[in-house]
């Protein structure tokens, strides 16, 4: 009855209506910002009086925006590599290991996900001020790595738990060294887990605002920090252009993940 779509009767349309409105509520602001980034109005009047590319020109003409985007990408790339490597090794330990306190350790590894980021940001800021890592790429990478690593461990332990270890043992039986078996049999089999670990780690760092606000210095800032600082002054449409570029990158990465999942299934 209530769980059968075709037999809901009039209620069906209420549910569909609410769902449609909610979907619109979620998607329209994103569409709206993308549309405004091509609008000519400085004051973001909608519908725009005319269409233009000048906000994109302003974005690409300003070295500070490009530099911030470059920094973001550079930091996110390093975070991705480290997060996958450390996450992979730790996941082997968590899934294959046998030691006291393993479950506690697993829970500990996920805590950065649930604690308020602002607490970590303030704590790391204090620590980095003392050891001189504030406003450095290293500082950014460490801060982002702490929040990216849980995503990595979660994805890779999931993949590793779904992998039948006897296949690896079979390779060893056929003469492969244990390391060779891991590199040529196990890693390719869990590549989907490694891939989603990489995507989540990248996006976590690329999108991260709160830690970045505290880690940034006048000479080193990521794209979100630049957007944040600009937003506090005015709502210039250049932000809309920058935001649209971010949305395009997000959609591209999401499609990549979806395609890869489809490829794995078939």
């Amino acid at each position: 009855m209530l769980l059968n779509f075709d037999r809901l009767g009039g209620w069906k349309w209420i549910l569909v209506g609410i769902t449609g409105l909610t979907a619109a509520f979620l998607v329209l602001p994103i569409v709206f910002i993308a549309a405004l980034s091509f609008g000519s109005s400085q004051w973001l009047i909608f519908p725009p009086p005319a269409w233009t590319l000048k906000w994109y020109e302003a974005f690409f003409a300003d070295p500070r925006w490009l530099e911030a985007a470059g920094t973001s990408f550079y930091i996110a790339a390093i975070v991705t590599v480290l997060s996958v490597l450390i996450g992979l090794v730790a996941s082997f330990g968590l899934v294959r290991g046998r030691f006291i306190g393993k479950e506690g350790l697993r829970a500990l590894f996920l805590t950065p996900m649930i604690l308020p980021v602002v607490v970590l940001a303030v704590a790391l800021y204090a620590f980095f001020l003392r050891i001189g890592l504030n406003g450095t790429v290293t500082g950014f990478v460490i801060a982002h790595l702490v929040v990216a690593l849980p995503f990595s461990i979660l994805s890779i332990t999931n993949a590793l738990e779904g992998f039948d270890k006897s296949i690896e043992d079979a390779a060893v039986l056929c003469g492969a060294s244990p390391l060779e078996a891991k590199l040529r049999i196990t890693l390719p089999s869990i590549s989907h887990g490694l891939f989603s670990a990489a995507v989540f780690s990248f996006l976590t760092s690329w999108d991260e605002v709160v830690l970045a606000i505290f880690m940034a210095s006048p000479t080193l800032q990521t794209l979100p920090v630049k957007i944040w600082a600009t937003l506090r002054q005015d709502l210039t449409p250049v932000i809309a252009a920058a935001s649209t570029l971010l949305i395009v990158i997000t959609i591209a990465l999401m499609l990549l993940v979806a395609l890869l999942r489809k490829g794995l299934k078939s």
Binding site: P224, I227, I239, I247
Partner: peptide
């Protein structure tokens, strides 16, 4: 997965 600042800006 859309940037948090983008959504807030919108």
């Amino acid at each position: 997965w859309t940037n948090l600042l983008t959504r807030t800006y919108a």
